[in-house]
């Protein structure tokens, strides 16, 4: 069976999740929200440097984009980034249509696509050899959806998304490396810190 990296439809560079996440975090200067999907996606977000505006998911696979949509609707003046794995996104493809319909201009979505469920033993996803996530996003109504060609292109697309007139989705092909850190699994503290980071609450 083909893996994602053999898929002839994709000629973009295979990058690394932790490196890309670190590049994103280094760009953030305005208390932007970042929602990290379950597993390696939020492990690498954690490892890239904890910030109060980061939210780490510990379950509910596939909900990074819906959670980010909720934050974006609640705070239209804040930029919201969502990081999601390809396997997770397959769980909630319908959410792309919801986001396209509501069209929040402060939402940037990144799909980390390695074509595998890395954390469960690197089994290929059903989409790996046949589907193009960015094409699915475009067909769902997210016209501003693009594969990042390489790291520089990723950074350029992130910057471009900040002034875009609608939501942006960036697909990145990544390697099969596991996450570099492990999020501290304390959901109440994660949520409370995030709410402090969002300016919704003050610490006790």
């Amino acid at each position: 069976m083909n893996s994602a990296n053999d898929n002839p439809a994709r000629n973009t560079k295979v990058m690394n999740r932790f490196d890309l996440t670190s590049r994103l975090i280094a760009k953030l200067k305005n208390e932007e929200a970042v929602i990290g999907g379950i597993g390696n996606t939020n492990f690498d977000l954690w490892a890239a440097g904890h910030r109060p505006q980061n939210f780490y998911m510990l379950g509910s696979m596939g909900l990074a984009f819906p959670i980010a949509l909720g934050v974006a609707l609640a705070q239209p003046d804040r930029r919201v980034f969502a990081l999601e794995g390809d396997g997770s996104l397959l769980m909630q493809l319908g959410s792309l249509t919801t986001i396209a319909t509501l069209a929040p201009k402060n939402l940037t979505m990144v799909v980390m696509d390695n074509g595998i469920y890395q954390i469960t033993g690197a089994q290929p996803t059903p989409a790996a050899a046949v589907a193009d996530i960015v094409a699915i996003a475009v067909a769902s109504g997210l016209a501003n959806s693009t594969w990042a060609a390489d790291e520089d292109d990723f950074e350029r697309l992130i910057e471009q998304s900040i002034s875009a007139a609608g939501p942006t989705l960036i697909g990145v092909r990544i390697d099969d490396k596991p996450g570099t850190g492990t999020t501290r699994r304390d959901p109440v503290q994660i949520r409370e810190h995030f709410m402090h980071g969002m300016g919704v609450r003050e610490p006790l």
């Binding site: 984009f65 959670i67 949509l69 934050v71 909630q92 919801t98």
Partner: peptide, 21 residues
């Protein structure tokens, strides 16, 4: 607005709550 799945709608209102809505 309609969501495609109930789970998705739960994610949306959870995010909104954390953002103050």
């Amino acid at each position: 607005f309609p969501a495609a799945r109930e789970e998705e709608a739960v994610g949306i209102v959870s995010g909104a709550w954390m953002g103050g809505m």
